[in-house]
């Protein structure tokens, strides 16, 4: 029987994820393309790990490899005693994933129905309570019974996040979570992510939002042409590449040009 809180390997919020020699090679029209070159990385609990890099650098492919939607060409994803890159059920039970764009939800269902359904999809019993709590947490109460197709882009994104947050997962993968959100909502999302971090969860975020990175990210992992470069922190990038204006975006641009 499946147990909501003790899935394959991720047994508590205190486990770390060790990525070893992970890579992905695709064959496109007979040509071999290395989307992600082999890399190793340790993802510690209680930290927000931020994947940075230009479009097509391999961030989303790596996110999909980590959650099990793409099979790696080489390498292992190890949690405690389990090897998640070979295990059939992998991280899936205790992993919450928001993929890019508000395409993770059913537009003809209401916000409440979507969250309730996602909880049930992961075998969680108290889905109704979880749904109500998450709607409350993200300020979506007034849209509880509104079909998602009638919601604004930002509110649809909030429903996507609510679906994932309701799972109370140990491992959170968020692909551009603040895309299309107004500044107030983006800040709310940041607060929620920081709250999750304090609970000892492993959080991976891909984003282009400089403010988000400055506020939330602790461990920066840079993606460039499929090559993965762990950068440690925002402060390190600011020190190495900043021009003294105190803006992360300036340092980040200089880093990319480097």
């Amino acid at each position: 029987m499946l147990n909501a809180r003790t899935p394959c390997g991720v047994t508590s919020g205190k486990d770390m994820i060790r990525i070893r020699n992970l890579s992905k090679t695709y064959s496109v029209s007979g040509k071999t393309v290395q989307a992600v070159k082999p890399f190793s990385l340790d993802l510690f609990p209680g930290k927000v790990h931020c994947f940075l890099g230009p479009n097509g650098a391999g961030k989303t492919t790596t996110v999909k490899m980590l959650c099990g939607l793409v099979t790696p060409s080489t390498g292992d994803i190890i949690v405690n005693r389990g090897n998640l890159s070979t295990s059939d059920d992998r991280l899936t039970f205790s992993t919450g994933v928001v993929l890019e764009g508000a395409r993770n939800i059913y537009w003809r269902l209401t916000a409440f129905e979507n969250i309730d359904y996602y909880c049930r999809l992961h075998g969680l019993r108290d889905s109704r309570n979880r749904a109500m709590q998450c709607l409350d947490q993200l300020g979506l109460q007034e849209y509880t019974n509104t079909e998602c197709r009638f919601l604004s882009r930002g509110n649809q994104q909030k429903v996507c996040l609510a679906c994932v947050l309701a799972l109370d997962a140990d491992f959170l993968l968020l692909d551009e979570p603040t895309l299309g959100l107004d500044i107030e909502t983006a800040h709310k999302v940041m607060d929620i992510i920081l709250g999750y971090k304090r609970n000892g969860r492993i959080i991976i975020v891909t984003t282009h939002d400089a403010e988000f990175i400055e506020t939330v990210a602790e461990n920066i992992i840079l993606f460039r042409g499929g090559k993965v470069e762990p950068m440690s922190s925002v402060a390190e990038i600011m020190t190495k590449y900043g021009n003294g204006d105190g803006r992360f975006s300036t340092a980040y641009l200089r880093l990319l040009k480097n």
């Binding site: 499946l2 899935p7 959650c67 099990g68 939607l69 059920d89 899936t92 039970f93 992993t95 994933v97 993929l99 993770n104 996602y118 999809l121 992961h122 075998g123 679906c163």
Partner: peptide
């Protein structure tokens, strides 16, 4: 993709 991620 969300359906594929279901542990069931």
């Amino acid at each position: 993709e969300q359906l594929i991620l279901s542990p069931i």
